[in-house]
Simulated scan of single mutants.
Amino acid sequence: MRTPTIPPLLQTLLLLLSILPHLTSAQFGFFEQMFGGNGGGAQHHQQHQHRQPQNVPSDPSFYQANYDRLHCDNYLCPDTLACVHFPHHCPCPWPSQEDKFEMGDGHRICVSKGGFKAGEAARKVELARKGML
């Protein structure tokens, strides 16, 4: 009985397919270690390979741990963790998509730029300040 031969192109393809999971595991292993993954290696990768991405848990411990480890002599902005002199100096979390407005009470608000004409967000904030909106 004659042994079938595998064409060289198919051999190369099979080799690449066999090492691909190991390459992706090595690539993402760094991120698992950085962000608290359990680093289970290939076994961990195989267990989660077919799962859909999961929503972030409703556990504030990640935020609290970062907030608690930061040092700020003035005011630590709760949403951006920026250290500023006054609350109204806090930056917006998404400055490329939000306009910042300082309020009279010493705070700031961030308003989405999306869908507004230039200056439209400022006009609406001013109308709201006057109680007209």
Rank of each mutant, 00 (worst) to 15 (best):
T3F: 03
P8N: 02
L9I: 01
Q11E: 06
T12R: 09
L14R: 12
L15C: 13
L16E: 00
S18A: 11
L20P: 09
L20M: 12
P21C: 01
P21T: 10
T24A: 01
T24K: 09
S25D: 06
S25L: 07
A26N: 11
Q27H: 10
G29D: 10
F30K: 13
F31P: 09
F31A: 08
Q33R: 15
F35C: 13
F35K: 13
G37R: 03
G39I: 01
G39A: 10
G41P: 02
A42M: 15
H44L: 08
H45V: 01
H45W: 14
H48Q: 01
Q49T: 04
Q49L: 15
H50M: 10
R51S: 12
Q52T: 15
Q54I: 14
Q54M: 07
Q54N: 04
P57Y: 05
D59G: 07
F62Q: 12
Q64N: 11
Q64F: 06
A65E: 15
D68V: 00
L70G: 03
H71S: 14
Y75G: 03
Y75I: 05
L76Y: 06
C77D: 03
T80Y: 00
L81V: 08
A82V: 10
A82F: 04
A82S: 11
C83T: 08
C83G: 09
V84R: 03
V84Q: 04
V84T: 07
H85Y: 04
H88R: 15
H89P: 00
P91H: 04
P95V: 02
P95S: 00
P95M: 03
E98I: 07
K100G: 06
K100I: 07
F101N: 01
M103K: 15
M103N: 11
D105P: 05
D105S: 15
G106D: 06
G106N: 04
R108N: 08
R108Y: 11
I109D: 01
I109Y: 00
V111H: 02
G115Q: 02
K117M: 10
K117G: 13
A121S: 15
A122F: 02
K124I: 13
E126L: 14
R129I: 12
R129W: 05
G131K: 12
G131F: 09
M132H: 05
L133I: 05
L133E: 14
